[in-house]
Nucleic acid binder design. Structure first.
Lengths: 121, 121
DNA sequence: GCAATAACTTACCAAAAAGTAGGGAACAAT
DNA sequence: ATTGTTCCCTACTTTTTGGTAAGTTATTGC
């Protein structure tokens, strides 16, 4: 058993899962991986189905866990963009692998997936 | 949008997530990755905190999705063992990477994790 | 015959995660 | 002045997920 921030984990895989678990986190992270940066609105538009509540909640957790950095680019008209931190970038093989595996699965099963593909590599 | 088995996915990463999402699936899979095979009872013992309900439920889904193979080794005394299928093995880089990343995180933050380490690499 | 073990299943309940719908501040554009 | 845009927050409800505890079948071991 591993204890970290008052939670217990069964193994290192579980620890990693603690950071990227949840329905939207990997989607947000991998989006930022391929887009380099994104505003709140762009993220929302490019993650079909995410509610604003979920988006801001998960962004806040990703920020807290230091995987994502929030850059305030302007205060007068309040503007922001999100990027992967170094920690977040260190998960890049994950984004790449999971995308590749998903694409492989779809190909093998003859499923169309080209729509909006540029957004996800 | 990608449609697969009546569900919709936003991108290939999401598709992959569809197979390995959930609290116990990656834990089961990575356990089998390092143990090669395991009986129901051994899995239960080595995944601290998993309830029987969760274990059989997730095993059933992993079987359905063809990531895990259930091998009935004896019928008279009903005995079974679970192994990764080829599909399940094709996710090996994921188990390795996630374990490695978790270990790296723990090291960087000076957390003890050696207990039962042989079970998870 | 009786307890123990393996491999589950099932009904019921609690907790956690996610969705819905609205509000709101600050500025910009018309 | 009104509408639109960006960037959120909050209360409430629903859905999903997970936990508890008990029961089941079959077989071995004493």
């Amino acid at each position: 058993m591993i204890t970290l921030n008052d939670k217990t984990y069964t193994c290192p895989v579980d620890v990693t899962l603690g950071f990227i678990g949840g329905k939207w986190k990997l989607l947000i992270l991998s989006h930022l991986h391929w887009q380099e940066q994104s505003s709140y609105t762009k993220l929302r538009e490019n993650l079909p189905g995410v509610s604003e509540k979920m988006l801001s909640q998960q962004l806040k957790e990703l920020e807290r866990d230091l995987l994502v950095t929030k850059n305030i680019t302007s205060r007068k008209p309040y503007r922001v963009h999100y990027t992967l931190s170094e920690e977040g970038k260190s998960l890049a093989p994950l984004y790449e692998f999971m995308s590749g595996w998903g694409v492989g699965y779809l190909k093998k099963h003859g499923v169309d997936y080209i729509q909006d593909q540029h957004l996800y590599k």
